[in-house]
């Protein structure tokens, strides 16, 4: 019950869906229609897992008065506040200028700016690393940096002013050697994904069972 049944579910589900691809018949299409109907419902509940562990970590922190425990309220209050707001005013989900709501306000004017800014911090860090850490230590690293410089200049308008060959060379690098490298990696990754799928479907890889008791 604890191990065998889940492994069976994975195997039957996996093989069924694999075969389904090759069978155009009505029966196979019906199975597939049920699958597309049901999966979103099942997966929606998976969100509870993430919310649950967030709640657990932060309520634990508050209870123990761990370092910086006050900030845990900044996680927990919006975590439950947002769904409540949306439930009270369901029309706020659709947002827009016509129906200003607290829910939409929090998303547009707190979530969006914070998240957008977080990633832009990296522009600063890249500049600092450019000076302090990016080294042409070997022939290979030198090639990498040279290609990077050509591409960086080729992608911006000023590259054009420095010489037509810059953007042309940059594009050539992107279209040919870069393509070759990425395709080889893509094929390797593709086989990796396929092998992992097989290992999971046929129960060779069972890591996903872990973490829920033996």
């Amino acid at each position: 019950m604890k191990r065998t049944v889940p492994l069976m579910i994975v195997m039957v589900g996996g093989i069924l869906m694999m075969l389904q691809y090759f069978i155009p018949h009505q029966i196979s299409q019906t199975v597939f229609a049920y699958y597309t109907d049901w999966t979103p419902i099942i997966v929606a509940f998976a969100l509870v897992l993430g919310v649950g562990s967030l709640t657990r970590i932060h309520s634990h922190k508050i209870r123990r008065k761990a370092k910086n425990w006050q900030y845990s309220y900044a996680v927990l209050i919006p975590l439950f506040g947002m769904p409540i707001l949306a439930h009270l005013w369901p029309e706020s989900i659709s947002g827009g200028m016509d129906s200003p709501s607290i829910f939409h306000f929090i998303f547009m004017h707190i979530q969006v700016p914070i998240q957008a800014t977080m990633f832009s911090l990296l522009a600063f860090y890249i500049a600092s690393a450019a000076f302090r850490a990016f080294r042409a230590k070997s022939a290979l690293a030198t090639v990498l940096l040279l290609a990077a410089v050509v591409v960086m200049l080729g992608q911006v308008p000023i590259g054009e002013l420095l010489g037509r060959w810059l953007p042309e060379t940059g594009l050539w690098i992107l279209r040919y050697p870069n393509l070759a490298a990425k395709r080889a990696i893509m094929l390797g990754v593709g086989f990796g994904i396929l092998a992992t799928s097989l290992k999971i479907i046929f129960g060779v890889e069972r890591n996903w069972l872990g973490g829920a008791g033996k």
Partner: peptide, 23 residues
């Protein structure tokens, strides 16, 4: 009439089968 096997997908079947066999 519905068919049991999709003849246009033979190459995927061969490639997939070969892959499964080799693994």
């Amino acid at each position: 009439v519905g068919e049991i096997y999709h003849t246009g997908k033979t190459r995927v079947l061969i490639a997939g089968g070969l892959f499964i066999f080799l693994i």
